[in-house]
Nucleic acid binder design. Sequence first.
DNA 1: AATATTTGTAATGTAAATTGTTACAGATTA
DNA 2: TAATCTGTAACAATTTACATTACAAATATT
Lengths: 152, 152
Amino acid sequence: MRVSTQFSIAVHVMLMIAGFPDEKITSEVAAESAGCNPVIIRNVFAKLKNANLLITKSGKGKTTLARPDTEITLWDIYCAVESEETEEIFKFHQNTSQTCMVGSNIHSLLAPHFDSAVAALKADFSKVTLADLKEELYDTIRSKASEGEVFG
Amino acid sequence: MRVSTQFSIAVHVMLMIAGFPDEKITSEVAAESAGCNPVIIRNVFAKLKNANLLITKSGKGKTTLARPDTEITLWDIYCAVESEETEEIFKFHQNTSQTCMVGSNIHSLLAPHFDSAVAALKADFSKVTLADLKEELYDTIRSKASEGEVFG
DNA sequence: AATATTTGTAATGTAAATTGTTACAGATTA
DNA sequence: TAATCTGTAACAATTTACATTACAAATATT
């Protein structure tokens, strides 16, 4: 199982926007911070916008959250960039024998368990909001600052 | 996020062996039922054997479970064919800026939440044993049999 | 209105992962 | 010894992910 880097990139940019609302976060700036190509960021922007999490504006790079950071969860961001469909997450082997008892039933047998696993994932990610992450980020910065590591 | 077909194939063959202990389940037979190449099955066999879930014997195809089906869970099978390491499941974007507050902290910030998600997945899959699946299969067969659907 | 800036997106290239296939050595049973 | 099957290596084909270039469309500033 592998979740593409787009998820961590998406959280990254959302956290930049939520954590530093006064900064102008363009795809260029975000790409510099995330260490990837600006077009990757724009594609992530597009997906986040499509999921009603982000408001982007051509021209002057006014990217803002579409709703309060207390109402945006990791699951929301996950769904924006990855599919939440069980069939997309757990890929079934095709061409199973329809004359075999196991082959003809394996799909319908396994499906509910896979659904359950996705639900567990959803429940866990839904507990964490962008506001939580922002606070954790601030805490980290504060603790590093007290150790004089910020400008080190 | 995508889990390779090897997982559903692995469950498939384990269920064949658990459900029909009197049948000789060779890689050839399993491949026929799963609709894939025998070598795929042998590779899955090797992984299941390596995870101490299966006992295979060259020569006469005596594949048997390494322990009772009540003590083999979906998580065991998952771990046999996929990595259970968080870093392998959730892939981070690399090359983040170390001079940016978000870039330098995003990894350590996100890691515990990803660990938590994997733990949720593990908890869910650990609840289901091969014996459970076997019973569900038997139920399905019985119910189809009562509708006269078994032999087409 | 003209210009500069930035997003949106298509097209293309490249690398990595997955799956399929052939081939054959090694183990086991009869 | 012969037949059968697993274990693996080698390689091709396919798919997916990520990077990059290029340019159209939208927006704000002057």
